[in-house]
Simulated scan of single mutants.
Amino acid sequence: MIVAGASVQGTAHLAGGQGCQDAFKAVDLGGTAVLAVSDGAGSRDRSALGAHIAVDAACRLLAERIPDAEEPPEAWTRWVAGRGGRVVEEYLRAVAGVLGAGALRAEAGAPGTGAGATGTDVGPGAEGLDADTRAADTGTLADTRAADPSPLTDTRAADPSTLAATLTAAVVAPPWVAFVSLGDGFGTLLTRDDRCHLVLPPPAAPAPFLSSPGAALRVRTFAVWEPDLAGVVLSTDGCAALALDHPAVHQLPPEAGPLPAAGFFLGLAATLRENHGDAEPLRRRLSGPEAGRTGDDLTVLCALVEGG
C-alpha cells in the first residue's frame, strides 16, 4: 500500500495570519490502511487542535477489529456503523480531557497549539504516518491521549465548540473500503481501469461538527466492495475547486451533482506510484494558483493499492 498526503495553508488564512486548521493522519497496516482528514472551523479559537484530536481518535478506533476481506457485506456494514458513533464519543472524551485537565496550559500559549504548518506531508522518510506530530504541539496531543476519559459532563468547565472540527475517514482493506464521515469532506475511489468514482460526495446542506449536539446520530457510514480497487483519496472541502468538476463540464444537468476531476485524481495516482509515495509533488499542486481560488486550507490523503 502506498500512503501519502499533504496539508497546505489556505491563501485567506495566510493573508490573515491564521494557521492551517486542517489535519490528517494515516495508519499503514500492511495490506490495510486507515485514513482520516479533518477540517477545523475557521471561526473557532482552537479548531486546529480539534482537527488533530479528530483524526487521532478516528485512526485509533478504526484500526481495531477490522473485519476480514472474506466476511459478508452485513459484517462490514455493521462494523463501520458501530465505529461511526464511537468515533464521535471518543472525540468528545478527548476534548473533555483537554478542556478539563489541559485547557489552561493550551490557553496559556503552549507552542504550536491551534496552528498548523503551511505545508505538511506524509511520504517516504516520515516518522510513521502521523501528521499530527508534525503540524501541532506533540505535548498537547500527548495530553489528549493520556487524559483520563472523564464523563462528558466535564465539558461544562469550558465550551467544546471551540475545538469544532469535521471528520472524513476510511478503512482501505481491498476489496473493501469503509467510510465514516461527519462534515463536508469527500472521498473518491480509483479503479484499475483508470476511472474515479465520487462515492462520498460533499453534503448538499451545511454539515454539523463532531462537537454539535446529536453528532453521533448524524454520522454517515457505509462500506463499498470494489474488486478492481486501485486507490482511495480523501479530501477536505477546500480541495473542491481543484478536485471536483461541475456537471456542466461533462454535459450533464446540475442535478447530477459534482463529479471527480479525472485529471487530478489519475494524475495524482500516477505521480505517487512513479515516485513511490513521495508527497512533495502533491504539496506543490495544493500550493499552486489554481488550488488557491477558495482561500481555504487544502488537505488530500490517499492510499494506493500496490500493483493497482
Rank of each mutant, 00 (worst) to 15 (best):
V80L: 03
E90D: 13
A269T: 13
V171S: 04
R273W: 05
T118D: 15
G214R: 08
T113G: 01
P151T: 07
P281M: 09
R283Q: 15
V305P: 02
H52K: 10
G112E: 11
L244H: 04
G19N: 07
L210E: 04
L92G: 01
A223H: 05
V171H: 06
R195Y: 06
V95I: 15
H197L: 14
C302H: 04
P213H: 02
A169P: 01
D296T: 02
A207F: 05
E89Y: 08
T120W: 10
G30V: 08
D154I: 12
A158W: 11
F222D: 08
F24A: 14
P72F: 01
G114Y: 09
A158F: 06
A216I: 02
T168C: 10
P67E: 12
R60E: 14
A262F: 02
A243W: 03
E71R: 03
V199T: 06
G109R: 02
N275R: 12
G214E: 12
L198I: 05
D154K: 07
A23H: 14
E107H: 11
T188L: 10
A223G: 11
P203A: 14
V232A: 08
G109A: 15
I66R: 12
P247D: 06
R105F: 00
T166K: 00
R105Q: 08
Q251F: 03
A101K: 08
A75H: 06
L200I: 04
G40D: 08
V219F: 08
A207D: 04
G16Q: 15
L163A: 00
G267A: 08
V98M: 15
A103I: 05
A248D: 13
G50Q: 09
T77H: 04
A81S: 13
E64K: 13
G19P: 04
R283H: 12
G267D: 13
R46Y: 08
P258Q: 13
P206C: 05
L282A: 12
T120M: 05
V37Q: 10
G308R: 04
V199W: 09
E127W: 05
L242G: 06
L62S: 14
T11P: 03
A23T: 12
A147N: 12
P160L: 01
P260N: 06
W176Q: 13
S287K: 09
H246C: 06
V8H: 04
G40N: 11
R93Y: 07
A33M: 14
G114F: 03
F265W: 15
G123S: 11
Q18E: 14
A279Q: 06
G288C: 13
L189Y: 02
T113H: 00
G128V: 12
A248F: 11
N275D: 13
G42L: 01
P289Y: 00
L152P: 09
G231Y: 07
A157N: 05
D278E: 15
P160D: 02
L99F: 01
Q18R: 15
P203W: 01
G185L: 01
G119F: 03
H52R: 15
A157S: 11
S161Y: 10
A36M: 00
A147S: 15
A57G: 07
L244I: 06
R273L: 04
R293M: 10
L129V: 09
G185T: 06
L167N: 02
T294D: 14
G97E: 11
A142D: 14
T294N: 03
A126W: 07
L234I: 13
T162N: 09
R78T: 10
R93G: 10
T271W: 01
L304D: 04
D45R: 14
F264I: 14
E89G: 04
V172H: 08
P73H: 05
W176L: 03
L189T: 05
